[in-house]
Nucleic acid binder design. Sequence first.
DNA 1: GTTTTTACCATGCACTCGCATGAGAAAATG
DNA 2: CATTTTCTCATGCGAGTGCATGGTAAAAAC
Lengths: 201, 201
Amino acid sequence: MPKIVDHDARRRHIADAVHRIVHDKGMESVSLREVAAEAGMSMGAVQYYVTTKEQMLLLALERIGMWIGERVAAVTARQPTPLDVLRTTVLELLPLDEERRFLNRVGLAFQASSVVNENQAAAMRLGYAHLLAFLTEQIRAAQAAGQLAAGLDAGKEASILYAFAQGVVNAALVGHYTPQEVTALLDEHLGRMSAGPLPMI
Amino acid sequence: MPKIVDHDARRRHIADAVHRIVHDKGMESVSLREVAAEAGMSMGAVQYYVTTKEQMLLLALERIGMWIGERVAAVTARQPTPLDVLRTTVLELLPLDEERRFLNRVGLAFQASSVVNENQAAAMRLGYAHLLAFLTEQIRAAQAAGQLAAGLDAGKEASILYAFAQGVVNAALVGHYTPQEVTALLDEHLGRMSAGPLPMI
DNA sequence: GTTTTTACCATGCACTCGCATGAGAAAATG
DNA sequence: CATTTTCTCATGCGAGTGCATGGTAAAAAC
């Protein structure tokens, strides 16, 4: 048979183009033509790998979720204690450098889009559940290690922590928090959960 | 001169139509024709009161800000203590009933839109600053009344509290927190700030 | 009455949209 | 070689987009 093409690679290429457009000009600027141009391919080629615009957006959303998951997994692997893992994980979710800022801009756009698109909402809930489960797990580990008060409801703490992180992201993206301010806010919040003083990293 | 028309009322009418469309079908479904149909007027009439789509969206955003401001002002007026005002204000910002859910859906859409639209971002920052100043003020009052620890940095606490609230809103809109869960999370967070146990309302 | 100012509407224009179609290029198989 | 399968492209279609224009109703001013 003919030309062997890595379909998955093509899809990734398309999804990345979608991400860049969403980041630069917003969700409403995403069109098949614009994506094709950004991806450096013809519109027909895009249509070959993606049957509909809706599916294309869903693909882009799912890949954002994977991207975040990979980042979190990679960084947390090399932290000494559960509380360090927890703090670093949340920091990983905040717009503290260009790449995370990029991820968060695109993420916020999809968050808003998910409100009126049930398929996208389902994908978001999935990533949300994973992240929340991971945070809960780390809080439990920190409790077991004596780094967090044993009396805390780990699930509830995870919800609050993640809500706080998301809120900071929103504010940072539209307002103008500096990375330092964002980090300071997080540590203030974590310090309130923590049994003792926060370890410096 | 001729037909006396309340321009401001017309603008409000148009803005409300924009809100309903954003709420029901999302930001990307907003078009002059759609808005005109939703507002029950001709496209020409809409154009008469709003010179451009961009301006129309900005108008709609500003009116959302006013709406929230009015709600907050109205409710907080009849609270006994500063801490009650604080709690009630934050509750006012959460999607706990149909109207607040409506406000938050539209608000989140504009938040995302503001990321790639500097005029909208400026309007959002304005509302953000007002709300944050108000929260800070209430925290200070609560400290003066002995309801919150005097050592807290009121401004920082307000930032954290508002970030938390925004994050809960995001999660509630796309996920499925019930109003009870949302309220429980808030009280958990407030309880951590508070010197003593939370008063029941 | 006529004039003047305000409010409104229908329509046109150039453009973009998502999607469908059919033709053709490219490469492995027979 | 020819055939078959995979991939790519250009183009067309109907619909929708923001915005501009010219005309028209209507009411106050004269």
